[in-house]
């Protein structure tokens, strides 16, 4: 009974810190930047289908509409924007000199990492759902393809799954932000892995390249060269290794 109570207490404690992480985002411009950033994908898609509808109306189906929007998001934008919010969440504490306070209140360093990760998970899922909703909304501004429930459900699941898979890549961006404490390196990293994914996705190596995997595992429907378990293992390994690196590094770091 006692252990149940104390572990319950621990859980509520974790949520208390999570609540703090949410408060920190109040009036933050980064929230709007991230919404605008992911919004570019459905917007590009919308413009494309608007002209497609005029020139090749036969090509315009609801499946294509969702698929193309999804590819814009996952191939071009997601890694960059998710990397950006991750960097923001971690590097702002250094730039605003707030860690001295957080860590002496005291919140343990591991708690800081875990709570920021949970916050980022929520934020990513929110952005995925927003993008999905925005894609539907844009359809009703001048395109008007008939929605089919089956397709809606299919892509809703793809968007959710993609968000979850992208979350596995977050600790690596976090680690770079923790070490470099600046945006330049993590944005640079985001650009490099995005380009690498574009090149590599169509080869068999894409199947084990973590940054190509959210798309391949969630949205791609063709055959794999390797067993899918290789891909899943690669992603999980990336998550565990980089999260461990974050926790080890942050726990040893001198806060100056």
């Amino acid at each position: 009974m006692k252990t149940i109570l104390s572990s319950l207490q621990e859980v509520t404690e974790i949520f208390r810190i999570l609540h703090i992480e949410l408060i920190k985002l109040r009036r933050s411009t980064m929230v709007w930047v991230s919404v605008f950033g992911v919004g570019i994908a459905p917007l590009l898609n919308y413009l494309m289908f608007l002209s497609l509808k005029r020139e090749m109306p036969s090509q315009v189906t609801i499946e294509r509409y969702f698929e193309q929007g999804y590819i814009f998001l996952s191939a071009l934008i997601a890694t960059l924007i998710f990397g950006l919010i991750t960097t923001y969440i971690f590097s702002r504490e250094y730039q605003e000199h707030t860690l001295e306070n957080m860590l002496t209140i005291p919140v343990t360093r591991t708690e800081v990492i875990i709570n920021k990760m949970v916050l980022l998970f929520i934020w990513i899922i929110f952005l995925m759902l927003f993008t999905f909703g925005f894609t539907i909304l844009l359809n009703y501004i001048g395109i008007f393809i008939d929605l089919r429930l089956m397709i809606l459900i299919k892509f809703f699941r793809i968007y959710l799954l993609t968000g979850i898979l992208h979350f596995a890549l977050i600790p690596m961006a976090a680690f770079i932000a923790l070490v470099s404490k600046s945006y330049i390196y993590s944005i640079g990293f985001g650009i490099v892995v995005t380009i690498m994914s574009l090149v590599i996705t169509n080869t068999k190596y894409g199947e084990v390249f973590p940054w190509a995997l959210p798309y391949l595992l969630a949205g791609y429907e063709g055959d794999f060269h390797y067993p899918v378990s290789y891909s899943i293992a690669s992603l999980i390994l990336t998550f565990i290794v980089s999260l461990t690196l974050c926790i080890l590094y942050f726990n040893r770091e001198d806060i100056e």
Binding site: I23, E100, N101, I105
Partner: peptide, 22 residues
């Protein structure tokens, strides 16, 4: 601290609320 850090997007009271909560 020597360089006192606060969240610039929050008010003074909100910054303190972070501490009282935690």
């Amino acid at each position: 601290p020597e360089f006192s850090g606060f969240y610039s997007n929050l008010t003074g009271a909100e910054n303190l609320k972070i501490n009282t909560r935690l």
